[in-house]
């Protein structure tokens, strides 16, 4: 049960949040132009890294805002948190 520093509310218990999968996967602007394989790549393919991973999180039982998190999945250490649209921190 970790603590998450919501960029809008501050530090809150993990149970207020929902994880939203891998971050920085942009919805294609022109889906109809894509082949089945290209669309499948967007739709289904997600990394599942042991180590440092970029993720989307939602303060579901709080301000309902989405934000990004850099988390080491091997020990749940949160390396960084930043708002949607902001550049991910360079490693």
């Amino acid at each position: 049960m970790f603590l998450i520093n919501c960029p809008y509310c501050g530090e809150r218990d993990q149970q207020e949040f929902k994880a939203g999968g891998e971050a920085h996967i942009e919805r294609p602007k022109q889906p109809t132009e894509l082949s089945d394989d290209e669309w499948a790549e967007y739709l289904f393919m997600r990394k599942n890294i042991k180590g440092v991973q970029f993720e989307r999180w939602n303060h579901a039982h709080g301000c309902r805002k989405w934000f990004n998190m850099v988390r080491d999945t091997s020990n749940d250490e949160i390396k960084a948190i930043y708002k949607m649209g902001e550049k991910p921190p360079s490693q």
Partner: peptide
Amino acid sequence: GKLEDYLQT
């Protein structure tokens, strides 16, 4: 939740 997700992200 889903609609908020699309709107925000």
